[in-house]
């Protein structure tokens, strides 16, 4: 039961990174593309953005049902960055919808666009910060250390900051590649291919900086990656895919599906490589008592019911999801 839940949790995390990433990233790419990009981007994400975000809700629900103390403890100590994630989610979803569904297109739209862009940076950044704080190992539950030590310092540091910046670049990159396939003409296509290349470089650069920041904070992330063969393979795989994707971006052919699949594999392999070294720890705690899947799991009866709900859910959701994408995403 537990293994199955962990697998589904991992899968929904990956799917959220890819789909939610493509979605949040759209706001980042729009910042690069300017006004011209607005229509392409709105059209591409409008039918699917709500469904994309349910993967996050799914991950949250699995976490608080299956591993309640992980959810409770994270919400306690990472209250501030999580609150920022939420504010980003609120502004982004509403600003996008307001802009898209407002019947009159007038001056007010620039406010929605502004909010849409800003919040498209805020949420990925603070998601990265949150994740960084979970693995850095500065989290403490000792109330006596004071407000800053407990509620601020675990996430306000160089490593977490770099994780946030990396998340922004990654989401933007995923989205730019996704949008290449949504373009109408060759000129537009070339523009988005250019954004994709730029953001790929940024993603790799910030990825390296994440490792560097980790070293500076005495968290030997690179070492951990290099210690297990699987994570080395995953790291190599995602690196090898870079020139391949670069090549496809430069070519004029409309093989956008391959591009999307390649980026999907790239993101998945980075995440699997990271899961592998991280497993089974969910939160690294200062001084040792780490939260793992095993010491926080809910009783067997709960896990059983959760699995049933998830399987029934996936049986309903996955075909529906594919159908939704088929209706709207097949090359027009």
């Amino acid at each position: 039961m537990l293994t199955l839940i962990i697998l589904i949790l991992g899968a929904s995390f990956i799917l959220y990174t890819i789909l939610g990433g493509a979605d949040f990233g759209a706001g980042i790419v729009e910042t690069l593309a300017g006004e011209k990009g607005e229509r392409t981007i709105s059209k591409a994400i409008a039918p699917v953005w709500e469904a994309n975000h349910v993967w996050l809700i799914l991950a949250v629900v699995i976490l608080f049902t299956g591993f309640p103390s992980v959810y409770a403890s994270l919400s306690l100590v990472l209250h501030i960055p999580l609150m920022m994630v939420l504010l980003g989610i609120i502004f982004r979803g509403t600003a996008f919808t307001f802009r898209h569904y407002d019947v009159i297109n007038d001056n007010t739209h620039k406010y929605y666009t502004f909010l849409f862009k800003i919040s498209s940076f805020i949420t990925p950044f603070f998601l990265g910060v949150t994740l960084g704080a979970m693995i850095l190992g500065r989290i403490t539950f000792d109330q006596s250390v004071g407000f800053y030590e407990m509620f601020v310092l675990p996430w306000l540091n160089l490593f977490c900051f770099m994780m946030g910046v990396f998340a922004i670049a990654l989401f933007g990159y995923i989205s730019a590649v996704f949008l290449v396939g949504e373009t109408k003409n060759d000129r537009e296509r070339r523009r988005y291919a250019m954004f994709s290349r730029q953001l790929m470089i940024f993603t790799m650069l910030f990825g390296l900086l994440v490792f560097a920041a980790a070293e500076l904070q005495n968290h030997h992330l690179l070492n951990e990656f290099l210690q297990s063969p699987i994570s080395i393979i995953m790291l190599l795989l995602s690196t090898i895919l870079c020139p391949v994707i670069w090549y496809f971006l430069n070519r004029k052919t409309n093989k956008t599906l391959y591009l999307r699949i390649a980026v999907g594999i790239q993101v998945t392999s980075i995440l699997i490589g990271w899961f592998y070294i991280q497993y089974p720890v969910l939160i690294m705690v200062k001084g040792g008592d780490h939260f793992t899947f095993f010491n926080t799991q809910a009783p067997e009866a709960t896990l059983q019911q959760l699995v049933i709900a998830l399987i029934v859910g996936l049986v309903l959701i996955v075909p529906g999801f594919i159908y939704l994408f088929k209706v709207f995403k097949v090359e027009r």
Partner: peptide, 20 residues
């Protein structure tokens, strides 16, 4: 969490279907 997670996970499922 582990006691009332079940209705929440069903709710998540239903909402997912609704959004799609």
């Amino acid at each position: 969490g582990s006691i009332i997670g079940m209705p929440f996970s069903w709710e998540g499922t239903a909402f997912f279907v609704e959004a799609i």
